[in-house]
């Protein structure tokens, strides 16, 4: 289901990525997202098509919609799943969720109510390679909405440049220890095709924007490589980086807990280590060109 003001161009992409049928619901009141019109239209479509499962992204708007929709449909909702499977015997959707600050894993099912609803944490599943040759069915459905259906109005929206560190393959991360100086970190990131991330302290200090924050209250990332600079490594932070394949920690404090969750550990001044690292990469790059 694609709901919005002008979402038709996305239908082909959805099919290329694996969808068989795309239901398009277009209406000016569906864009930008607000809860009431979206809930009304989606609830109507669900009642009409009676799906077994209804999955939404666990983004702020996805969770805003799912929570309301589940009550309207009087069904069960497994929120913020980190994995989804189908139980072979029962055929039920099994959602894996974390709780208690990520310390506990649980699986949740919705045995007797339909649809089985779940929101899925961004970054948990990799987006499939689009296959432009794939064919599918696109159905444009009529939408009946009036101004009375919209009780919350969006006055304005301010989106910073589309940073999505949940999708980053490489990350250079700065924390309290970089003392507000992200210049070298940005340089290294540019050089090695990485995004810049930050600990909560760095965001609190206003050194970088909130959309770059890693951790429990920021983004859960899963890069192949994360170079973590001057971050002490409080639990709130490490939950956001624990799924990285390789973690490098650079911190002048040998006792910093970040070293307990790192593959390669350097106890030294961040900038003293980054400078020669950048030099070496720049030399290699120049050598390749020359």
């Amino acid at each position: 289901m694609l709901l919005g003001g002008d979402v038709q161009p996305l239908a082909a992409e959805a099919i290329a990525c694996g969808a068989d049928t795309v239901i398009l619901a277009e209406h000016p009141l569906l864009e930008p997202y607000t809860t009431d019109p979206q809930t009304k239209v989606m609830a109507g479509l669900v009642l009409e098509h009676k799906p077994d499962m209804l999955l939404l992204g666990a983004t702020p708007n996805g969770r805003d919609l799912a929570g309301r929709l589940a009550v309207r449909l009087r069904t069960g909702l497994t929120a913020d799943c980190t994995d989804l499977t189908i139980d072979e015997k029962s055929g039920l959707l099994v959602g894996e969720v974390t709780g208690f600050g990520q310390g506990i894993l649980a699986t949740i099912e919705c045995p007797r109510h339909r649809p089985q609803m779940a929101t899925v944490r961004p970054g948990v599943f990799t987006r499939p390679q689009p296959d432009p040759s794939r064919q599918g069915d696109v159905r444009l459905v009529p939408v009946e909405l009036s101004e009375a259906d919209q009780r919350v109005r969006v006055l304005r929206r301010s989106t910073s440049k589309g940073v999505d560190i949940t999708q980053a393959e490489r990350l250079v991360v700065g924390g309290r220890g970089v003392q507000g100086d992200f210049a070298l970190l940005r340089k290294l990131a540019r050089l090695m095709g990485a995004d810049v991330g930050a600990s909560r302290v760095a965001v609190d200090q206003g050194w970088v924007g909130h959309d770059r924050m890693i951790g429990q209250t920021g983004s859960i990332t899963r890069p192949k490589l994360a170079i973590v600079c001057g971050v002490s490594g409080a639990t709130q932070f490490t939950v956001g980086i624990q799924d990285a394949e390789t973690v490098v920690a650079i911190n002048s404090d040998r006792e910093a807990p970040i070293f307990e969750t790192a593959d390669y550990c350097i106890v030294d001044d961040v900038f003293q280590v980054l400078a020669p690292l950048i030099d070496a990469l720049e030399r290699e790059k120049a050598g390749k060109k020359g």
Partner: peptide, 28 residues
């Protein structure tokens, strides 16, 4: 409508924890 079907502790990733030492140049 929902039921918890299993509970477990989240797996903690095993990290290498290899310390690199020397001058900053050598460490880099």
């Amino acid at each position: 409508p929902t039921a918890v079907s299993s509970v477990g502790a989240a797996p903690s990733a095993q990290r290498r924890g290899e310390f690199l030492s020397g001058t900053p140049q050598e460490e880099a």
